[in-house]
Amino acid sequence: MNYSFEYIDIILLAMIAGFIFLRLRGILGKRSGYEGKSSPQFQEVLNKIKVDSQKKPSDKFDDEAQKEFLKGAKIAYETIITDFSDNDNKITNAKPLLNKDIYDQFDDALKNRAKRGHYAEITFIGVNKAEIKEHKKNGNILNVTVDFIAEVITCIRDKEKKIVSGDPEKIKKIYDTWVFSRDTTSVNPNWQLVNILT
């Protein structure tokens, strides 16, 4: 009889352990696929555009909202520029920040660069200035045009590592005007680059 009670105890303990395991797995999740760490820079961008399902989106674009927007826009600008210069010939970190048309343009440019056997070298010094030029609302869509002034060291090299353009020793000032867009009725507060003005 004692043996039967011991078996029952073992079975009960196993069931309890299994229950606890399933509960922990349900709460903590399980490891699957790639779990490498993204760069701190990209993580900051993700934090800026992260969806907060507890808050309703605001269609206000007052001074405070503009300041927050510009903080994120500077990070997005650097992420996009440096991602385009990476030599894996594809847009990775910046993809969520681009609408389909801009992504396709960047992707085509990278493919053409790869076909020519060229690769880019870039050191992003920083954004000197980011200023909202204008913001317009078209229905539910808010478009914000931003003037950027930034400094980079950049050059393009060919297969033999000869310089095709740029100067690896010289800081270059670049001027860009980008248009970001967001649907103000969406619970997703993501801004995307929708146009690059010349």
Rank of each mutant, 00 (worst) to 15 (best):
I75N: 11
I75M: 14
A76F: 08
Y77D: 05
Y77W: 08
I80N: 05
I80C: 07
I81F: 03
I81C: 02
I81A: 04
T82Y: 03
F84K: 00
F84R: 05
K90V: 11
T92H: 10
T92K: 14
N93F: 13
A94K: 03
K95Y: 06
K95S: 14
L97W: 07
L97D: 01
L97Q: 03
L98V: 09
L98H: 01
N99W: 08
K100S: 13
D101M: 13
D101I: 12
I102S: 07
I102L: 10
D107M: 07
D107R: 06
A109N: 13
L110C: 00
L110P: 01
L110E: 05
K111S: 11
K111Q: 15
A114Q: 13
K115D: 15
K115I: 13
G117L: 00
Y119P: 06
A120M: 12
E121C: 09
E121G: 11
I125Y: 01
I125E: 06
V127K: 02
N128Q: 14
N128F: 04
K129D: 09
K129H: 09
A130W: 04
A130K: 02
H135W: 13
K136N: 12
K136I: 14
K137H: 08
G139H: 04
N140M: 11
I141R: 07
I141Y: 09
L142D: 01
N143R: 10
N143H: 11
V144R: 04
T145W: 06
V146E: 00
D147K: 10
D147L: 10
F148D: 00
F148T: 02
A150Y: 08
A150F: 09
E151A: 10
E151L: 07
I153A: 05
R157P: 05
D158M: 06
K159Y: 00
K161C: 03
I163V: 13
I163R: 03
V164D: 04
S165T: 09
S165Y: 01
D167T: 06
D167F: 02
P168F: 00
E169D: 09
K170D: 01
K170P: 00
K172Q: 15
K172C: 10
K173Y: 04
I174E: 12
I174H: 06
